[in-house]
Design a protein around this nucleic acid. Structure first.
Length: 831
RNA sequence: GCGGGCGUGGUGGAACCGGUAGACACGCCGGCCUUAGGAGCCGGUGGCGCAAGCCAUGGGGGUUCGAGUCCCUCCGCCCGCACCA
């Protein structure tokens, strides 16, 4: 007898799929009348080897893709590589080899591995973000945003690693230190490129209402927090003794303005030097400068720790509280952040915990304006942030704060022109420039010619601006591209005079903010995409990936679609109609990593058991959105199951006559098997087609079906019934274990399972003439008895009452209530 | 601190609208087959109890004929954001 040989089965079917182009969809507008489905998993970074997270991600997507295909959709299911980025560049610095060479090697490796996993991917659409054929369009999109004023350059504080001599992305700063060097990161002011994502803050926030229930709640919450919209007022505080100069603050509680007893500037506040110039005591000014310098040197993460004790220095000058007319002192303190609001606050210690702590530390006055309900008129032991009634607040006194008072305060300020309603966001503009080599060049030049044209975009016809070859990839305070003098020197497209190229490259999140659009029309040489083609596929029906991209990638991609839709290139407000975030695969409860030595590579598992075992196991181990712990013995069990499925199918195909499935009336053994098969169809359909991706229970259902089909249990079942049940098992497991499923199915039926329509369960075989009636007394199960499905409530009660076990518990007591749930149970309530 | 999620056998987990708690699998125990087995097959397996039965879904309380599921409360764990004015 033949043995289950996963490798032979894999080779055979992967060959067939490639040869018959089974999962390719023709280019262009999809118009064959079938509904379309776009199923996408987040594209991998090609680090070389595929890991278990990849297997989970792509296996999930593959189940969905197969299911959608077999339920009648034309499915787009592509793959590509997020190929620019630091790991390859760091490898280049280490080895001296060009990052492109390293990356292309890594891509070849991961492609080979992914292809060996047998996913139903249309490989003709494969793309790689580091190829000029792709990044020319990244550049084109940059130019469209630039023309629309959505891409701009300005000076900004950035993370500077003094050891590596480079700017670092926020993600590369761990606890205030450079990820690789371990050096304390400093803030530096450098000219940088930004995308104006803040212009879309409201829409990014408001449109999330449509994603409710279709995206994981926590991802929506994370994005909402990240955007961080706060409604309040901007209020202007005149500087005492200097006519004309005023400092603006943002506050969410303008109603507490009467309680503002001091004023705090961030150490980075731009007006600080000007204010210091007017300070009379030079020692005081020196103290402020020393404080500012110390703050600058403090790592960002450390500075923004909430538990840190408050510190600050008095500036030696006052502002006038615009509603009380009284002077209040200005302080400089690093708990006020330049990056939020105006970089200055009015401090209301009675109503804000931070201001309270600061006031207590430095002995500043605390004036109660929102009276706590139980207030005795004395000093507060801590800030009161709850609801209350305003006291000592001019004409607002007596209003409920903040409910009534907030709006009243804004009207008050606007009437007197000392403030106005404002909305502030936590979201900042997206800093996209990197002083790094291995990224997409920013397609602009700086004119040095007679035209003095300043920043000039490279005409789209001249794209791509190719990444030049350089010999040294070390960042030395400027982008390595700057060393390519030949490349940097160019001519101004506008005046024809000399010009220098921009040497920064783009953040790799720009590359991945639109790749899913390119998949729709990957070979278009005239445009990033043809809008009609994109319209047939977008939005993505199901997007699947790790929760680590909950904010950045998903927010950037949403922004791109909105901006490009506004510019007329697209009609996609939300690119990802449904999002699923998968949990991690852990080992012994910890994240797998090479450094911990607990990583288990898919390659080892596949070599040993075959890819189908790996794919099934990873989806069987638990609900896919949860983290799941890898268990070596569990894999073994999955291998046994697939072996059994294959072996029984192969044996049946060889030994049992090819008879059709039996029809009613069914012999008892046939009926049992046929019922189980239809039950499994029903169960798997619900698990895959429903809202939840219950892959684990779907696999379990096929296992149950197989358990019904062992030689011992088959009994006198007819060959037709056995063949039907086995081919059903093969057809249902195919989505999870495509090679094994396809092979078993073909042996049994001679047909290709992926071309088969999704099976439908026969409702007659889902229902039964009898059911097991559960009989309870006072809610406790006392007996079970077979009962006819069509029995009346009275019949069920009679049946139940006669049971000896029930009699024992009811005997001698009074039945006060009888509950009947048809088809389920009877409950006698006795006293 | 704010927000989100979770807590079920030795283990991963199942249980749709409140209606048989523990599907399926791992592990463990026993058996068959075998020179042997880390192969295959069959059976058992929440706890206590000889048994009838009792106890069990983090703890406590409530609603209900009936609660893992709903409500209140406490405890614990995980994740995200965090001096955001």
């Amino acid at each position: 007898m033949e043995r289950y040989d996963p490798r032979a089965v894999e080779t055979r079917w992967q060959d067939v799929w490639a040869r018959t182009r089974a999962f390719e969809v023709p280019a262009g507008v999809a118009d064959d009348g079938r509904p379309t489905a776009y199923v996408l998993e987040m594209l991998p970074y090609p680090s070389g080897e595929a890991h278990m997270g990849h297997v989970k991600n792509y296996s999930m997507g593959d189940v969905i893709a197969h299911y959608r295909r077999r339920t009648g959709a034309r499915v787009l299911h592509p793959m590509g590589y997020d190929a620019f980025g630091l790991p390859a560049e760091n490898a280049a610095i280490r080895t001296g080899r060009p990052p492109g060479e390293i990356t292309r090697e890594n891509i070849a490796t991961i492609r080979r591995q992914l292809q060996s996993h047998g996913y139903s991917i249309d490989w003709t659409r494969e793309l790689s973000t580091c190829e000029p054929s792709y990044y020319r369009w990244t550049q084109a999109l940059f130019l469209r945003l630039f023309d629309a004023g959505l891409a701009y350059r300005r000076e900004a504080p950035v993370n500077w690693d003094p050891v590596e001599q480079t700017v670092l992305a926020n993600e590369q700063v761990i606890d205030g230190r450079g990820e690789r060097s371990g050096a304390l990161v400093e803030q530096r002011l450098l000219a940088q490129w930004f995308f104006r994502i803040t212009a879309y803050a409201d829409r990014l926030l408001d449109d999330m209402a449509d994603l409710e229930g279709r995206w994981p709640e926590r991802v929506l919450t994370m994005q909402r927090n990240w955007i961080g919209r706060s409604q309040g007022a901007e209020v202007s505080f005149p500087v005492a003794g200097e006519t004309g100069l005023a400092l603006d603050v943002f506050t969410t509680r303008p109603d507490t303005l009467w309680g503002a007893t001091f004023f705090v500037l961030s150490p980075e506040h731009p007006q600080l030097e000007r204010l210091l110039a007017g300070v009379e005591d030079p020692a005081a000014a020196e103290r402020v400068r020393a404080y500012v310098e110390a703050a600058r040197r403090t790592p960002t993460d450390e500075r923004s720790a909430a538990e840190r004790p408050k510190s600050g220095v008095p500036l030696g000058r006052d502002v006038i509280n615009p509603v009380t007319g009284r002077p209040i002192p200005i302080w400089v303190a690093d708990y006020v952040l330049m990056g939020y609001g105006t970089g200055a606050i009015m401090a209301v210690p009675a109503g804000d915990e931070r201001d309270f702590e600061f006031a207590t530390t430095y002995g500043l006055p605390i004036t109660v304006v929102v009276a706590p309900p139980d207030w005795d008129g004395g000093p507060l032991a801590q800030a009161y942030t709850g609801e209350g009634v305003l006291v000592d607040s001019g004409e607002l006194t007596g209003l409920a704060a903040p409910s009534q008072a907030k709006g009243a305060a804004i009207r008050y300020l606007e009437e007197r022109e000392i403030g106005r309603a404002t909305v502030t966001y936590r979201l900042r503009d997206w800093l996209i420039s990197r002083q790094r080599y291995w990224g997409c060049p920013i397609p602009v030049v700086y004119c040095e010619g007679p035209g003095e044209d300043g920043i000039v975009p490279v005409p789209e016809a001249d794209l791509p601006v190719l990444l030049p070859d350089v010999s040294d990839y070390h960042p030395r305070g400027r982008s390595p591209l700057a060393t390519a003098e030949e490349w940097v020197r160019t001519t101004c497209p506008r005046c024809g005079g000399p010009a220098r190229r921009e040497t920064d490259t783009m953040d790799t999140f720009v590359d991945s903010a639109w790749y899913f659009l390119r998949y729709c029309d990957p070979d278009n040489e005239a445009a990033p995409w043809d809008r009609r083609v994109v319209d047939t596929w977008m939005p993505i029906d199901q997007y699947i990936g790790g929760v680590e991209h909950a904010i950045l990638h998903l927010l950037y991609a949403r922004f791109f679609c909105k901006a490009l839709t506004d510019l007329g290139h697209l009609d996609v407000q939300e690119p990802f109609a449904r999002l699923f975030t998968q949990g991690m695969i852990t080992r012994d409860g910890a994240k797998m990593s090479k450094s911990k030595g607990n990583a288990i590579s898919p390659r080892e598992i596949i070599d040993r058991y075959g890819v189908d075992t790996a794919r099934c196991y990873i989806l069987f181990i638990g609900p896919p959105d949860q983290d799941a712990d890898w268990n070596d013995q569990g894999v073994e069990g999955m291998y046994r199951f697939l072996s059994r499925l294959w072996r029984l199918s192969a044996e049946a195909a060889e030994t049992l006559p090819d008879e059709p499935a039996p029809v009613a009336p069914l012999a008892p053994d046939d009926e049992r098997i046929m019922r189980k098969a239809h039950w499994a169809i029903d169960k798997v359909t619900a698990d895959l087609g429903g809202e939840r991706f219950s892959f684990n229970t779907a696999v379990a259902a096929v296992m149950e079906l197989m358990n019904e089909l062992t030689e011992a249990k088959r009994g006198a079942a007819s060959p037709g019934a056995v063949r039907f049940a086995l081919s059903t098992a093969a057809s249902l497991i195919f989505q999870f274990a495509p090679h094994t499923g396809a092979d078993a199915y073909e042996r049994l039926t001679g047909r290709r399972v992926w071309e088969e329509e999704w099976p439908s369960a026969d409702s007659a075989l889902l229902e039964s003439d009898t059911f097991e009636l559960v009989v309870q007394v006072n809610g406790k199960v006392r007996d079970r008895v077979p009962a006819p499905s069509d029995a009346s409530q009275d019949d069920l009660l009679t049946l139940a009452r006669d049971l000896p076990n029930v009699q024992t518990h009811v005997d001698g007591r009074q039945v006060v209530k009888e509950v009947v749930v048809p088809g389920k149970l009877v409950n006698f309530v006795v006293r």
